[in-house]
Design a protein around this nucleic acid. Structure first.
Length: 812
DNA sequence: CGAGTCCTCGCGAAA
DNA sequence: CGAGGACTCG
């Protein structure tokens, strides 16, 4: 997961490890290290618990790893130990991580320890591992290995059609709620049949849902497609239905390791169970396995299982994560050993004390206290802005200050609860010429034009995929409207063939010459691309499709100014395919599509990019930064208002806050705003209850909720210093129930204003006036053209960077 | 069929 | 405020 900064690897071990192990003249130690392990690179610098976690051998091991306790280090060394001692071949190891990035990092770190040998291991996410298995075994249960993977947006499109078709919207069904319900069922390994058996047949809502679920499933099957949840559950079904196939993997993987175990759902849990099951003697005999790990009775023992997790960091209940998986591990796997890692190597004690204080408010948890030997460190910085922009300005100013003091932008991150909060942050960051990247959110691959281009590729790989064919049918516009689409679909349904095949019948379906011609051209293009895909590179196929289809041209010709950027995005996608070819010389079109389908938000993180990272608290899990800005620490946002009525909701929100806090190595900033724009209007915000759970003396308020309130002209300000603040529930004196009408009363609140300054010329020494910061003097101007940046010392607001082109400034 | 406009609704997190 | 749907007109 994260590149832990534990002393376990910092002093000298990491550098010295590589030559020691790779150098063949060094005797390879077999078996376990003797004595205290001094001199053994795998154990050097580990604390006793970590060491035990690396060395323990047995059927099942649970490592309860607190935040920052060096678990990645432990996990990689554990794997390296298995390989080094020849207890396992690389091919016998399956390690499941939460993101592809974590997988890549783990592979690299094991590689450092044992060399090229690491290449044969399966280190991947649940979803990637399942796709790999499913593609390999697809033919065994009625799928073709070129199946499409539908993301949630694809599922929603499909459900929208179905709900409309069935007029189920009048019963309150929406693509979103039906999709969530289906997802939930699948996470519990439910299917249409099991739902039908257990449903209340007298409930019209359930009857309708059954029909939606049934149609959805049928359409997925017909399209040769799996949704995200299917990837896991279908693999489990496959293993259960075909023990001899399961046995292939049960025999192969002798060591299964699972990271972030607290966030596994029931389907994932079941998958692990299936994989670590012993193979009965009769199955071994029938399969004719020739294997050394057979026991006396002819069976193959179950694989050894190692799971790592921390129930305090369980934040994916909404995705079906079941905390019981980790809590009941010892019961599930009799004979399991549990090792606790509590020493933290990441954060300062002040940060950990805050984290401990917060999380201790959750009941039903085993008490666990993180501690560190590095000392108290700086206090946590608190700030209350008047508005979201104000808060963002604080963040931007602090980031610039830290940067001037020598901290790299890439070592700073801004977290928030909801994606919508990025807007104010981005507006201010752009204006401040601050280099940043938003992780996740509206991702590249979720853009409409990229999904269009990808749909062309999908239609080539999987002609059965009606969703993909439908998407490209009239994109770009080629005169094939809804009526034509319906006719084609009807023909396909009646002839029991696919939409793709129906395209070949354009001439026989009575369309006008223009429409029929369009269809014929499209069909021919798909055929041409299919032929090319058989031997050409992915980028060639994509280029052919996006040019000959007219997709790029249509965007270029459009007068919508945003379409130019969209055309560039498609160019960018072509570049992505070329990059993919370089990295995966043997990669097929299917492989490329799979990879794209399974990229996670955190996968985009590039340490070398030199930018500040913006991300949700969920995406932040497993990462760490020198400086963290946790924004929007307000009631209704964190904890989010939707969580209030959910069982376990508030506790999970607290864990989310806890996860955010524990990402910080040295500097933690907690910020909030007194009012926040949503739905285009301003709403009053109150400080989060979680703030009160942090002892006062750990936070240094630059501007406390109390002072922010008083400066705005409400009530007795002097009394409302940091200590005077009593939290959100104290209405009279410490409260923040501002009247709705009274907004914008803060004279010095920062706004998101921008202005087009054209080619305003500024030079060092010029005096300027800024809408928000008042007057100041230009210190220097850097950059070129539209990226010119003025470094300004404001008389009252301090030093700031401004992007000249858009900053709301005038020359005096 | 398609482009344009008005209108409504929503923002919870994600592989 | 923004996306997406319904509606209208050419």
């Amino acid at each position: 997961m994260s590149s832990s900064s534990s002393p376990a690897q910092t002093p000298s071990s990491r550098e010295s490890v590589t030559p020691l192990i790779v150098d063949s003249s060094t005797p390879v130690r077999t078996g376990r290290a003797q004595g205290d392990g001094r001199g053994d690179p795998l154990l050097d610098g580990l604390n006793p618990q970590q060491r035990e976690a690396v060395e323990y051998r047995g059927p099942a091991l649970l490592i309860v790893a607190g935040a920052g306790s060096g678990k990645t280090s432990v996990l990689t060394r554990r794997i390296a130990g298995l390989l080094r001692s020849r207890e396992a071949f690389p091919s016998q190891i399956l390690a499941i991580t939460f993101t592809n990035k974590a997988a890549a990092e783990m592979r690299e770190r094991v590689g450092h320890l044992v060399g090229r040998e690491a290449d044969g291991m399966w280190i991947s996410t649940f979803h990637s591992a399942c796709v790999r298995i499913l593609r390999r075994e697809a033919e065994n249960f009625g799928f073709k290995s070129g199946f499409t993977i539908y993301d949630s947006a694809d599922s929603r499109v499909l459900l929208k059609r179905i709900i409309k078709d069935l007029d189920a919207d009048v019963l309150g069904f929406t693509p979103a709620n039906a999709g969530a319900r289906i997802s939930k069922l699948k996470n519990e390994l439910g299917d249409v049949d099991s739902f039908a058996r257990n449903m209340n047949v007298g409930d019209p809502n359930e009857v309708a849902f059954l029909e939606i679920f049934r149609r959805y499933t049928r359409e997925l099957t017909a399209a040769n497609a799996f949704d995200f949840d299917d990837l896991i559950s279908q693999t489990v079904f496959l293993f259960r239905a075909f023990p001899h196939i399961a046995a292939l993997y049960q025999r192969r993987f002798r060591h299964v390791l699972v990271d972030e175990y607290q966030d596994t759902n029931h389907a994932q849990y079941s998958l692990i169970r299936e994989l670590t099951r012993p193979v009965p003697a009769d199955v071994v005999a029938r399969a004719g396995f020739d294997t050394p790990v057979r026991t006396g009775d002819g069976s193959i023992p179950g694989a050894s299982l190692t799971v790592v997790g921390d129930s305090d960091q369980s934040i994916y209940a909404f995705r079906g994560a079941d905390i019981r998986n980790i809590v009941e591990f010892e019961r599930d796997f009799p004979g399991a050993t549990v090792i606790l890692l509590e020493q933290n190597y990441r954060s300062t004690q002040n940060i950990l004390s805050a984290a401990n204080a917060v999380i201790s408010n959750n009941f039903d948890r085993k008490d666990k206290k993180l501690w560190t030997a590095v000392g108290d460190g700086d206090k946590i910085v608190g700030y209350t802005g008047y508005t979201g922009h104000d808060e963002a300005q604080f963040v931007a100013d602090e980031i610039e200050k830290l940067h001037r003091e020598g901290m790299a932008y890439s070592q700073m991150a801004v977290f928030y609860r909801t994606n919508a909060q990025t807007r104010a942050l981005e507006e201010i960051f752009i204006r401040s010429a601050l280099p940043y990247r938003v992780m996740g959110g509206t991702k590249f691959y979720e853009r409409a034009e990229i999904k269009d281009a990808m749909a062309y590729l999908t239609a080539v790989v999987n002609p059965a995929d009606a969703l993909a064919v439908r998407r490209i049918l009239n994109t770009p516009k080629r005169g094939i409207g809804p009526a034509t689409e319906t006719q084609l679909q009807n023909f396909a349904d009646n002839a029991e063939t696919s939409l793709r095949e129906a395209l070949r019948e354009a001439d026989t379906l009575g369309f006008g010459p223009k429409v029929a011609g369009s269809i014929r051209t499209l069909s021919a293009l798909l055929d041409e691309a299919t032929a090319l895909a058989a031997q050409g590179e992915v980028s060639d196929v994509l280029t052919l499709l996006v040019t000959k289809s007219g997709l790029v041209d249509a965007l270029r010709m459009s007068r919508d100014p945003q379409d130019e950027a969209r055309a560039e995005n498609i160019e960018e996608l072509v570049a992505v395919t070329k990059e993919y070819e370089r990295n995966n010389p043997d990669g097929t079109l299917v492989d490329f599509l799979t990879e794209v389908s399974l990229v996670a938000a955190a996968d985009e993180l590039d340490d070398s990019s030199g930018t500040v990272s913006l991300m949700t608290l969920h995406t932040a899990k497993g990462l760490e930064f020198d400086a963290v800005f946790l924004t929007g620490v307000e009631e209704e946002l964190l904890p989010h208002k939707m969580s209030a009525n959910e069982p376990g909701g508030p506790a999970e929100e607290r864990r989310l806050f806890y996860v955010g806090i524990t990402r910080a190595r040295k500097k933690l900033h907690l910020s909030l705003a007194m009012s926040r724009a949503q739905f285009g209007e301003t709403a009053v915000a109150m400080p989060s209850r979680f703030l009160q759970e942090i002892p006062d003396d750990l936070i240094e308020w630059r501007q406390s909720p109390g002072t922010a309130r008083s400066r705005g002209g409400f009530g007795p300000g002097a009394l409302n210093g940091p200590r005077g603040w009593k939290g959100p529930n104290n209405d009279r004196d410490g409260g923040f129930a501002l009247p709705r009408a009274e907004k914008k009363v803060w004279p010095n609140a920062v706004t998101g204003t921008v202005r087009d300054n054209g080619d305003l010329e500024l030079a060092a020494g010029d005096r300027i006036r800024h809408t928000d910061f008042g007057e100041g003097r230009v210190l220097a101007v850097t950059g070129e053209g539209s990226k010119r940046v003025a470094h300004v010392a404001f008389d009252a607001a301090g030093q700031k960077k401004l992007l000249i082109k858009i900053a709301p400034i005038e020359k005096l």
